[in-house]
């Protein structure tokens, strides 16, 4: 039974992002490169947060401190990633066979965000997945067997959030819109703070608000990309 848990949780967390990757990124080598660079930059950001956390030993017992540092570094590296992309845009365009690449700025932001999210998701879930193989599940000292599915759902939420955040963040930077950038940073802090409730086993209190934030972020990202409700509705009418 527990091996099933491993596979179904993997599917829940990584199924959707992998489909997105396969349909939008996998066919273009330059996008793959950008995604890899973005994933790597997430790793570096996490490494730096770990160093800071390690150096401030008195605060080790407080998970919130580590979380705050990690979110700060992640957003810092998102900004660095933006600068990096803008600097290399022209060059990328040249080496790419698809010369239209970069003409749509949202596209790059999306690819960056997906890489960022996938790496953070992998980091968050791999250890949990390793324990889901069994034969045991949570319950002996509190907790329920739904711990694994909530972890996977939370991971999926974070991957998608990172994707949307990058779209909004990059767009905000382009337009010098502090509102959009601060939404990204604040909602990131908010969702991460919610996950602190996991220790108290209030899984619903984490997941529901997180998904609501994710939906709001998705709508904002959609708008940043130039979509409107009208155009969306129209697309349905056109196809019918």
């Amino acid at each position: 039974m527990t091996l099933g848990e491993f596979f179904s949780c993997s599917l829940l967390a990584f199924g959707a992002p992998l489909v997105m990757f396969a349909m939008t990124v996998a066919n273009d080598p330059v996008r793959i490169i950008i995604m890899t660079v973005s994933a790597f930059s997430w790793l570096v950001s996490f490494l730096l947060s770990a160093i800071v956390w390690y150096l401030v030993s008195p605060l080790w017992p407080y998970v919130a401190f580590g979380m705050a540092v990690a979110v700060m570094f992640q957003e810092l590296f998102r900004a660095l990633m933006y600068i990096f992309l803008r600097k290399t845009e022209a060059g990328l365009k040249e080496i790419s066979e698809n010369h239209s690449i970069g003409s749509n700025k949202v596209e790059m932001a999306y690819v960056c965000g997906l890489g960022y999210g996938l790496m953070s998701g992998a980091f968050a879930l791999v250890n949990v997945l390793a324990d889901s193989v069994g034969p045991g599940t949570l319950g002996l000292q509190g907790g329920t067997e739904y711990f694994f599915i909530t972890s996977a759902a939370m991971t999926l939420c974070m991957i998608l959030l990172n994707t949307f955040w990058s779209v909004i963040f990059f767009n905000g930077c382009d337009e010098y819109s502090y509102l959009k950038v601060s939404w990204v940073v604040l909602s990131h802090y908010f969702v991460s703070a919610l996950s602190l409730l996991n220790r108290k086993e209030l899984y619903y209190a984490t997941i529901l608000p997180s998904y609501i934030v994710m939906l709001i972020t998705a709508v904002i990202a959609f708008r940043c990309a130039g979509g409107t409700s009208k155009s969306l509705l129209q697309s349905f009418r056109l196809s019918s």
Partner: peptide, 19 residues
């Protein structure tokens, strides 16, 4: 505690739907 399998089933359904 061994799992009842309900969590796994739920995860599989949600995962499929999300994908």
């Amino acid at each position: 505690v061994s799992a009842s399998g309900k969590g796994a089933t739920a995860a599989a359904i949600c995962g499929l739907a999300a994908t």
